[in-house]
Nucleic acid binder design. Structure first.
Lengths: 201, 201
DNA sequence: GTCCTATGCTGAACCGCGTTCAATTGTGAG
DNA sequence: CTCACAATTGAACGCGGTTCAGCATAGGAC
């Protein structure tokens, strides 16, 4: 039977991604153990390495899913948002925060995964990132019709990075009593002021 | 001889911190190995554990130094900055960027170190962080004399987080060709706009 | 059906690493 | 000098990712 092996591996691959996803969500990236994975998947320890080069590759597969889900959430928020570009940015920023808070361990794994020194980011990463940037770019472009592409790109990256930083540090101290609505307030504050008409351009 | 043991340990403690600092700076946090440390310090493997509870404690000691050096750099930049509060914020943000770029691995270790789930941050961390926040808070207060303390704190945290996010993501892709002056441009862009008079308060 | 070979699968073993603790060495009071 | 106690040592432990020699299986030839 042609492709029997390929199919078995495909099923195992999906199983392993599902289990790894659940494990990371529950215990964090450092809670992922090859032996536990094999036990839960009902496969041999070595079988993992027939499907993935190493555990890091498996984590990257989980991350691809996570990143895609993140993109979907942000897109859904954008679709329901008002027409006002500033509101759109705020809604997306808060959707980003919401996703990170609800899937904290999976979201952290996106950034905590080991990346080889000079290695280029995988295609799916660039594609998802590009999509997120487009969502941000478009409202900004409509707010600043005269801005050059280069400046728009800079602004896009700056705002994404700012929201990311606010969420990152905000969730880090979340256990220390920082309230979720404070994070949303900071996101809203930054985005409102950054899109306010007092233009510096 | 009184205190002979204590003195020997003190010297070893300093040696270990120095070696760990150099190792992290060269090879990153994951390049730190107990056996290498012992070899380089000319001590027994177990001796490390007479001085530090575990390797994480040693990393925290390195981080304390790094954080202090960061605070000193930012303070020095502030001291040489113009009187204009916005310029002061920009100079500090760029000093933060500069420190992170020049001591990338040590700076990353500040955030990559393992922190126990519910464990409170150590005192030195809170003290240094408070100092940094004061540097940011004061120019903001002079720019917004009518703002409440709570709002000022929110703005302070939001701006710190934003600059942190810009530097973090900027340096991550630094190998991928993002130029350092772009990071500075983003920092300047955010801080100028966020302190622009078009007040939302 | 039976044999045979090539291919896939398995899990015991390997290695590196943080950490421990029984055995050794050093210390200083009497 | 002696002794009791403390400090130091480094071999050994446990854990976890990864490998690979040996076993199982599939499927073609007859």
């Amino acid at each position: 039977m042609a492709g029997k092996v390929a199919e078995r591996r495909k099923v195992l691959r999906e199983d392993l991604i599902n289990i790894a996803e659940a494990t990371i969500a529950r215990d964090g990236l450092s809670g992922l153990r090859a032996r536990d994975l094999a036990t839960q998947a009902g496969c041999a320890l070595g079988a993992i390495y027939n499907v993935f080069g190493d555990l890091n590759d498996l984590v990257l597969a989980v991350n691809a899913r996570t990143f895609h889900a993140l993109g979907t959430d942000v897109a859904a928020a954008l679709a329901q948002a008002p027409q006002d570009p500033t509101d759109q940015l705020i809604v997306m920023g808060q959707a980003y925060h919401s996703f990170a808070a609800e899937h904290h361990n999976l979201w952290r794994a996106l950034f905590d995964v080991e990346r080889a020194e000079g290695e280029a980011a995988p295609d799916w990463y660039l594609a998802e990132m590009g999509q997120l940037f487009t969502y941000i770019h478009d409202p900004l472009a409509s707010l600043n019709p005269k801005m050059t592409q280069a400046d728009l790109l800079l602004l896009t990256k700056a705002l994404f990075s700012s929201v990311h930083g606010i969420v990152l540090l905000g969730l880090d101290e979340a256990s220390a009593g920082v309230r979720s609505h404070n994070i949303d307030a900071m996101i809203s504050l930054i985005l409102k002021q950054m899109t306010a008409p007092k233009s510096l351009w």
